Amino acid sequence: TFELKGKVGKVVKIAEDHYLVEVEGDKWIAYSDEKLSLGDRVMVVDVDGLKLKAKRIP
């Protein structure tokens, strides 16, 4: 999973306390310091076990 750092994905679902992000065809649980919206493009900035930390990108 460490190779996911720096990869770009898309928010495909918003849950109460996390997001579901699709990166290279796989879906991952993600969290972010900022509020994300459905369809936002994100970059993986860190990997915490099986969770990704994501940041919105333009």
Rank of each mutant, 00 (worst) to 15 (best):
K5A: 14
L4W: 03
D26E: 10
V44R: 00
G25P: 03
L50S: 12
L38N: 07
V44W: 03
F2P: 15
K7W: 03
V45C: 08
E16V: 12
P58E: 12
E3W: 12
P58Y: 13
K55H: 03
E24A: 07
K10I: 11
I14R: 07
E24F: 06
V11M: 02
E3V: 02
E34C: 08
I57E: 08
R56M: 06
K27A: 09
L4E: 15
L38W: 09
P58W: 12
S32Q: 02
W28D: 01
K13S: 11
L38T: 08
E24P: 01
Y19F: 07
G25H: 08
W28Q: 02
A54D: 00
V44S: 01
M43G: 04
L20R: 04
E24D: 07
G49E: 07
D17L: 10
D46R: 03
L50A: 10
I29E: 12
I29W: 12
R56E: 02
K5P: 14
G25D: 07
V45G: 03
L20T: 10
E34W: 04
V47A: 07
V42Q: 00
E22D: 09
K7L: 05
R41I: 11
A30N: 01
R56Y: 06
V21L: 14
V12W: 08
S37D: 12
D48S: 08
I57S: 05
D33F: 08
L4P: 15
A15V: 14
S32Y: 01
E16R: 13
D26Q: 14
E22R: 07
H18M: 13
Y31K: 08
V45F: 03
V12M: 11
Y19M: 08
E24Y: 05
E34L: 04
E22M: 10
G9L: 13
D48L: 09
V44Q: 01
R41A: 13
G6D: 09
V8P: 04
R56Q: 05
K51W: 07
K5C: 15
L38H: 07
E22N: 08
K7Q: 06
V12R: 06
Y19D: 01
M43P: 00
D17G: 12
Y19R: 00
K51C: 09
D46C: 04
S32R: 03
W28R: 02
S37K: 11
L36V: 05
F2G: 15
E22H: 07
L20P: 00
R56L: 10
R56D: 01
V45Q: 04
E3L: 04
D40Y: 05
V45I: 11
T1E: 15
G9E: 00
D40A: 07
L4A: 05
Y31R: 07
Y19V: 06
I14F: 08
V45D: 07
L52K: 01
K10F: 12
K13I: 08
K10N: 11
L36D: 00
K35D: 09
V11T: 05
E16A: 12
H18E: 14
D26P: 05
V8F: 11
K13M: 11
D26R: 14
D26T: 15
Y31Q: 09
D33Y: 09
V8C: 14
D40S: 06
V44M: 05
K13R: 12
A54F: 09
V12G: 02
E22V: 13
V47Q: 13
M43S: 04
A15K: 13
K51D: 03
D33A: 09
V23Y: 02
K55A: 14
T1F: 15
K55R: 07
D17E: 11
L36Q: 01
V21M: 11
L50E: 08
K7P: 02
F2A: 15
V21Y: 00
K53P: 01
V47R: 06
K10E: 13
L20N: 05
E24K: 04
S32V: 11
E3T: 02
Y19E: 01
K53G: 03
G39R: 08
A54Q: 00
K55F: 03
D40L: 04
K53W: 10
D33V: 09
M43E: 15
I57N: 04
G25I: 04
T1W: 15
Y31S: 11
I57L: 12
V11P: 00
L20M: 12
L20C: 08
G49K: 05
V11E: 00
K35T: 11
D46A: 05
V44H: 01
K55G: 06
E34V: 05
V42G: 00
G49R: 05
W28C: 02
L52W: 02
I29C: 09
V45L: 06
D26C: 14
G49T: 04
K55D: 05
K10M: 12
E16Q: 11
R41Q: 13
Y19S: 04
V11G: 00
K51A: 10
L36S: 01
E24L: 10
G39C: 11
D17A: 10
V21A: 04
Y19P: 01
V45H: 03
D48N: 08
E22K: 08
L38V: 11
T1L: 14
V8N: 07
H18Y: 12
M43D: 05
K13N: 11
V47Y: 07
G6A: 02
I29Q: 14
A30W: 01
I14N: 05
D33C: 09
F2N: 15
K51I: 13
A30H: 01
I57C: 14
F2E: 15
A54R: 01
D46M: 03
E24Q: 06
K27P: 08
V11N: 00
L52T: 02
E34K: 04
L52A: 02
P58G: 12
G6S: 02
V47N: 05
K10Q: 12
D46I: 02
E22T: 11
S32T: 05
L38I: 10
G25Q: 08
G9T: 02
S37Q: 12
V12A: 06
Y19L: 05
D17Y: 11
K27L: 10
V42Y: 01
M43Y: 05
K27S: 11
V44K: 00
G6I: 01
K53L: 05
Y19A: 07
E3C: 10
D46P: 02
K55V: 08
V21Q: 00
I14Q: 08
A30F: 02
D26N: 14
V12D: 04
V47K: 05
K10A: 13
A15M: 14
V45T: 09
E34F: 04
E3P: 15
D48P: 01
P58K: 07
M43I: 13
G6N: 04
K27M: 08
W28Y: 14
V23C: 05
V23S: 03
R56V: 05
L52E: 00
H18V: 11
V23R: 01
E3M: 02
E34A: 06
I14C: 10
V12F: 10
D46H: 04
K10Y: 11
D40P: 00
R56A: 06
V23Q: 01
F2L: 15
V11A: 02
K53F: 12
A15I: 14
P58I: 09
H18S: 10
D46L: 03
I29L: 13
I57K: 03
K53N: 04
D33Q: 09
S32M: 04
P58Q: 12
S37L: 13
G39F: 13
R41T: 13
E16M: 13
L20D: 06
E16L: 13
L36C: 10
D46F: 03
I29Y: 14
P58L: 11
K35N: 10
K13Q: 10
A15D: 12
V23F: 05
K5R: 06
V47T: 07
K55T: 06
E22Q: 07
I57P: 03
P58C: 13
F2T: 15
G25S: 07
H18R: 08
L20E: 08
D46W: 02
G39S: 10
K55I: 06
L50V: 10
K27R: 12
F2S: 15
D48Y: 12
E24V: 07
E22S: 07
H18P: 00
F2H: 15
K55E: 12
A30K: 00
D17T: 12
K13H: 10
E22L: 12
I14T: 11
L50Q: 09
R41W: 13
S37E: 12
E34Y: 05
A15S: 12
K7F: 02
E3N: 03
V23G: 02
V12E: 05
L52D: 00
E16G: 14
K5V: 15
V8A: 07
L52H: 01
K7T: 03
